[in-house]
Computed example of a mutant assay.
Amino acid sequence: MIQSPVSIAAIYIVDKAYLFDNSCETMVLIAEVIKGQLEILVPGHKLPSWFIEHVVNKL
């Protein structure tokens, strides 16, 4: 889980970042950031609350 603002900044420093949700039994790739562009890969109703709070709401 992303817990600090530094982590959010880090996804924009690198060329590619992959965000996984591992809060369930199976790890799921939910988003990726390529050259600063966030692409959400799952339907909105399947996004975990931590992702909305710590990533989407921080953009």
Rank of each mutant, 00 (worst) to 15 (best):
A9Y: 00
A31T: 11
W50Q: 10
I30D: 03
E32N: 14
Q37P: 00
A9H: 01
K46V: 02
W50P: 15
E32M: 15
I30T: 08
A31S: 15
Y12Q: 04
E32F: 13
M1C: 06
V28W: 03
L38K: 12
N22K: 00
H54Q: 14
E39C: 14
Q3P: 02
I2L: 15
G44P: 07
L38A: 10
Q3L: 03
P48L: 03
C24A: 12
P5W: 03
Q37G: 05
F20I: 05
T26F: 12
N22A: 00
M27A: 15
K35R: 14
V14M: 04
I2T: 12
N22G: 08
V28Y: 06
Y18F: 15
P43D: 12
N57Y: 09
N57A: 15
L19R: 03
G44L: 09
P48T: 03
Q3S: 07
G44V: 07
V28K: 13
V6A: 03
V55G: 08
F20L: 13
M1D: 04
Y12H: 12
V28Q: 10
L29N: 09
F51N: 06
G36R: 03
E53M: 01
I30L: 11
H45R: 02
L38S: 12
Y18P: 06
K46E: 14
A17N: 07
Q3V: 04
I34V: 15
P48A: 00
A31P: 12
I52C: 04
E53S: 06
Q3W: 03
I8H: 09
S23I: 05
V55W: 07
P48Y: 00
P5V: 12
G36F: 01
F51G: 11
K16T: 15
W50D: 11
G36S: 05
I34S: 12
V33E: 01
L59V: 09
N22Y: 03
V28R: 13
P5C: 03
Y18C: 09
A17M: 09
I40G: 05
P48M: 02
L29M: 11
K16S: 09
L29F: 09
H54C: 13
